[in-house]
Simulated assay, not measured.
Amino acid sequence: MPRSRKPSLTAAAGAEAQALATRMLAMQAEAGLTIAMRMPLLLKGALGDSSGQREATKAVVEKVSAVVESSVAATYATTAFWWSFALNPLAQADLTEAAAKVAHSTLEPFARRTRANAARLTGRRR
């Protein structure tokens, strides 16, 4: 009977995937809270209130800086993996672990900002 050649996830890769899923769920909750708390401020800014306009500017600047920082982090993590693979081609390369590291480094700037915004807009301390 032929055996399936479907690759199995290692325990470490499964743990990485679970940690990534947990991080995504936390970010979604914090982003939803941030959006709910920002909407009244943005509406006031649309009506001419300067604090609402500052909040809108802050939101746009944060997003642009998070995208740039995320791109740099993802590029760095990917480059580090490929350089280590190129310098030691006989080493056991775990692509799932490398992909998880790239995903974590890509999400970190966004996670940090959503966590800080949720805390700032709800008035709670971290």
Rank of each mutant, 00 (worst) to 15 (best):
L20W: 15
T34A: 15
E16D: 13
V60Y: 14
Q18D: 13
L87Q: 11
A31Y: 13
Q18A: 15
T10P: 02
S51N: 10
R38T: 15
L20M: 11
R126W: 14
V72Q: 07
S65F: 05
A26V: 08
F110H: 03
P7M: 06
A91I: 01
V102G: 01
R54E: 13
D94A: 00
V67C: 06
W83P: 00
S8L: 11
G32A: 07
A31E: 08
A59W: 12
A31G: 09
L41Y: 00
D94L: 00
L25F: 08
Q28C: 09
V67A: 13
D94P: 00
F85H: 10
Q18I: 13
A99V: 02
F85Y: 13
A91P: 00
E62Q: 11
A99D: 00
A15N: 06
P7N: 09
V61Q: 11
V72K: 10
L42M: 10
E55F: 09
S51M: 06
L20C: 05
K6C: 00
T122C: 11
L47C: 08
F85A: 12
Y76T: 15
S51W: 01
T106C: 05
R115K: 11
Y76Q: 12
A21V: 06
M24A: 12
G123H: 08
R23V: 03
A26Y: 07
P89T: 02
E97S: 07
L90S: 07
K63E: 11
F85W: 12
A15Q: 14
R125I: 14
A93F: 10
T57W: 10
A80Y: 00
R120A: 15
L87E: 08
S50N: 04
D49F: 09
A111I: 01
A80F: 00
S4Q: 02
S50W: 00
F110R: 00
G48H: 12
A13D: 04
E108S: 10
V64D: 05
V72F: 14
Y76F: 09
T106Q: 06
S84P: 01
P89R: 04
A77M: 01
A17M: 15
L47G: 05
S84N: 14
A15Y: 03
F85T: 04
K6S: 03
V64S: 07
T79Y: 10
R23F: 12
D94Y: 00
M1F: 08
L9H: 04
A77L: 07
A91W: 02
R124Q: 04
A86V: 09
R115D: 08
N117Q: 12
A74K: 04
R115H: 14
L43G: 03
Q28D: 12
P109K: 05
E69A: 15
P40K: 11
L20E: 09
L25D: 13
